[in-house]
Amino acid sequence: MFHPDAVALTIPYLLSGLKVTLLLAILIVPLAFGMGTLVAIVANSTSRPVRLIAYLYIDFFRAFPPLVLIIFVFYALPFLGLRLPEIPAFVLAMTLNGSAYFAEIVRAGLAAVPKGQYEAAQATGLNGAQVLTYVVLPQALKKVRPPLLSNVLELAKATSLASVVAIAELLRSARIAQGAIYDPTPLLMAALVYLVMFWPFVRLLSLIEKRQSFSPV
């Protein structure tokens, strides 16, 4: 199955691809999480129109398959004269997608924090931002830790979509190598790399999900 020569030829391709995959994940996950948390805070605002805007954002970007967003950013935005380099373009598309999911999760977490927590924090003189940062957000994030981590995993896996727009991440590099040596070994090896990277994460996630019941909130 794994021909030694093919393996040796493939390794450099996969290493350079892996670097790009990791770079994408390291950029996208924090950006999407930060953006998502902001949107979630807006979605919990007391003003109805403001809330509505956040909900529109969440539902709009959750409604699109990530690949559609990517294709749109890559092939439609340039018509507007907005031609981003490949990696920023991909990061933008996945941040829009990922932040919508993060926002929905954090929003549910915020909604599950008892009102008394806000009131108690306010009563001690903390201002709005402090109430959120020190009292409410930590509790909210703890409540929704399993879906948050699961979304981190999904975003990391979704970096493979970059192969479609010719970014030489892990999957794309494997396909280039496959084309170079006429052998499926690179694809199987890439799959193996994904497995080695993400399986521990999946196990960890299973354990956390078991411990913290999967209840929808």
Binding site: L153, K157, A158, T159, S160, L161, S163, V164, L171, R175, Q178, D183, P184, L187, L188, A190, A191, Y194, L195, M197, F198, W199, F201, V202, R203, L205, S206
Partner: peptide
């Protein structure tokens, strides 16, 4: 379940479509 959760869907699709014919 673990394997299918670990692999990106696109990777599975590409493997099924390009590797299985081999």
């Amino acid at each position: 379940v673990d394997i299918l959760r670990s692999l990106p869907a696109l990777v599975i699709l590409i493997c099924i479509y390009f590797v299985l014919p081999e």
